[in-house]
Design a protein around this nucleic acid. Sequence first.
DNA 1: AATGAATGAGTATTCATTCAT
DNA 2: AATGAATGAATACTCATTCAT
Lengths: 173, 173, 173, 173
Amino acid sequence: MNNKEKIIQAALELFASNGYAETSIDKIAKRANVSKGLTYTHFKNKEDLLVVTIENTITKMTSKLLEREDIDFRFFFKMYFKSLIKNTQIIRLCVLLVAHPQTPSKISALLDKQKHELLELFSGLLQNKFKENAKIEAEILLATIDGITLEYVTNPNPKNLKKVLQYLIEKYA
Amino acid sequence: MNNKEKIIQAALELFASNGYAETSIDKIAKRANVSKGLTYTHFKNKEDLLVVTIENTITKMTSKLLEREDIDFRFFFKMYFKSLIKNTQIIRLCVLLVAHPQTPSKISALLDKQKHELLELFSGLLQNKFKENAKIEAEILLATIDGITLEYVTNPNPKNLKKVLQYLIEKYA
Amino acid sequence: MNNKEKIIQAALELFASNGYAETSIDKIAKRANVSKGLTYTHFKNKEDLLVVTIENTITKMTSKLLEREDIDFRFFFKMYFKSLIKNTQIIRLCVLLVAHPQTPSKISALLDKQKHELLELFSGLLQNKFKENAKIEAEILLATIDGITLEYVTNPNPKNLKKVLQYLIEKYA
Amino acid sequence: MNNKEKIIQAALELFASNGYAETSIDKIAKRANVSKGLTYTHFKNKEDLLVVTIENTITKMTSKLLEREDIDFRFFFKMYFKSLIKNTQIIRLCVLLVAHPQTPSKISALLDKQKHELLELFSGLLQNKFKENAKIEAEILLATIDGITLEYVTNPNPKNLKKVLQYLIEKYA
DNA sequence: AATGAATGAGTATTCATTCAT
DNA sequence: AATGAATGAATACTCATTCAT
């Protein structure tokens, strides 16, 4: 891992566990074992570091989820369940960013794009069962998953999460 | 409105529209038209001001919703819909606080209490329809509402909100 | 002398002897024996401190020179001579500010105003001797004085200054 | 133009238009289209770069002016007038350097040498007209030219400059 | 000669908090 | 209760300079 990657990694960890505003460049540099100045060699400013960090992470996290063609609810829910448990802190950071009034538009756009991809996926999968209501049902399912996510990152309880997702799988699959 | 109330009001507005970390005591005092020092006469510190502000607001906001005995889904959804539109910024602040790793425990506890009251309410209302699954269905409904809330405060679209809630009313009532 | 005045005094001394860009707020605060933060209680920023400092000083320095009604060349040259010797550093700072491409417009305007007052004065005094050429002769005299000033603040030599001004008095008075 | 010359050219332009302290090595390197490190291959440090840049420029600028043997006021004023209009920014930089308390002694010496060459020239030309006062008249003429220069670089007005120099030519030639 | 990653000291500015009045 | 001067630590960011390649 080169220094730039070390900085991104340190930033991700600290942003995720303490929040963006609460994390100073100084702490990031210290955790990455580099000088403060080097951060500004690789990133324009703190906001740029956040944007790169999030883009980097989101891309990695979701590439697996959406690349398969023959995706179904069972597969989706299981993958999402795993990701949520593995990346709890990062996903909480994303929730904070989505809800924060001053989040850079690049990040908002990225997260928004993801939302629409999921809506598309759900709409397709719900077409048979709900016909003309497929789209609104997709919206509701997405909301349900977002709510479960919010609940989990706030108060992580893997057992309960598994139970709920299992129930959803049976309901939708 | 006395000075203490003016400070609370100013704090609420600024926390809600800019975020807690991004709001300085100085700006709050200026908006409330009082001196910076007075804030520390009435509140122990910035965190205390946040706690009091949120307690104050949450209590006001939810008292109407949960005081009625004979509440049903139609009524609940309509009230929630109105509140969401009226208090968008404040509710977004609550989402931020729920998801933030450093939120004071008093606030977490308060918001958690609300969650459980809603779960109770939903469980009761869903008893007939879902029997032994009433509790998990209540959890899912709560998650759905949280997800709708998150979506709305992030990207407020009253028309779509109305459509979704209408659909939910027909589904659940 | 209260703290605000102490800051202005310290700023004046350091700006004058080291230059604006070369003087840090930290050094100013240390010389004034106050905390760095206090500077920002009294002045919006470093530029504002410069502006206030210069306005303050220029006003004091020139009020004596131009208040008299019956001013003549002998009096003017003698006063200017004294001021130049007493305020060498400050006047050098003004030269630097006049010539610097990024000097705040408030300061430029102030120094420009002074220039025009002097031009007026000289024009009047030279009217009899030079008739229709009085204005251009005033411009030339002002340039001469500026040049003498530049030479003196760069390389202070009181004897030579006295000699030159004496010669000018005889020439013009 | 080789890389070293490109750096000198970029430095000159930036020092002249923004000031020495306000110009970073980084900006110079970027404008010269070379790496930051290369600056330190060719110049010991930033100050050295300034010294070389100024020496280079001054030499070029004044070689034409003083090489002729049979120079007279008419010729001198015309040449100076042209140079002032063409090199306004650079000459302003020289004024800043002359007046700045921390200018490297090499530069001061260079500019001082020029001053004395001009004094010599003027003394000679004024010998016939002013006899024993030729030297002090030369000093005054030099001051006048310096003042005109200061005024012009501060507030460039070619028409007025021409008028004043024309007047001086008639007065002295 | 040429690059650009890397450093460390420095800079302006902010801000929660205290305290004398 | 109310003010605002005062503090000191923290913060994002800059920059001259070095050095391995």
